Amino acid sequence: MTEYKLVVVGAGGVGKSALTIQLIQNHFVDEYDPTIEDSYRKQVVIDGETCLLDILDTAGQEEYSAMRDQYMRTGEGFLCVFAINNTKSFEDIHHYREQIKRVKDSEDVPMVLVGNKCDLPSRTVDTKQAQDLARSYGIPFIETSAKTRQGVDDAFYTLVREIRKHKEKMSKDGKKKKKKSKTKCVIM
Rank of each mutant, 00 (worst) to 15 (best):
Q43A: 06
E31A: 09
Q43W: 02
C51I: 12
S17Y: 04
D54G: 03
E49F: 04
D47Y: 02
A59N: 14
Q25R: 08
L19C: 07
K16T: 11
T2D: 12
Q43H: 09
F28Q: 03
D38W: 03
V7D: 00
D57V: 15
E3V: 10
R41T: 10
E31S: 10
Y40L: 11
I36V: 12
V44N: 03
S17L: 03
D47I: 01
E37Y: 01
E62S: 11
A11P: 09
G48Q: 07
G15P: 00
V45H: 07
Y64E: 15
H27P: 05
C51A: 04
K42H: 06
T58V: 12
H27K: 11
L23I: 05
D47S: 04
L52K: 13
G60D: 13
V9F: 05
I21F: 13
H27R: 09
S17I: 02
I36E: 14
C51D: 06
Q43M: 03
V44L: 09
K5E: 01
L52A: 13
K42V: 05
G48T: 05
Y32R: 12
A59T: 14
I36K: 15
F28S: 11
T50Q: 02
D30Q: 14
L56R: 15
S17R: 08
R41S: 10
V45P: 06
V14I: 12
E31H: 07
L53Y: 02
I24W: 06
L53E: 05
T35G: 13
C51S: 05
I21G: 15
E3H: 11
Y64Q: 15
A18W: 04
K42R: 06
N26D: 12
Q25G: 08
V7M: 06
L52H: 15
N26L: 02
E37F: 08
V29H: 09
S17M: 04
V45T: 11
L19I: 07
K5W: 00
F28T: 05
A11F: 13
E37L: 04
V8S: 01
H27V: 09
T58S: 11
G12L: 04
V14M: 06
I46G: 04
Q25S: 07
G60Y: 04
A18I: 02
D33W: 04
G60C: 06
D33H: 06
N26E: 05
H27S: 10
A59Y: 08
H27W: 07
V9M: 07
R41H: 09
F28D: 10
S17W: 02
T58I: 11
L53D: 01
Y4S: 12
E49Y: 01
L56K: 14
G13F: 08
I21H: 15
V9T: 00
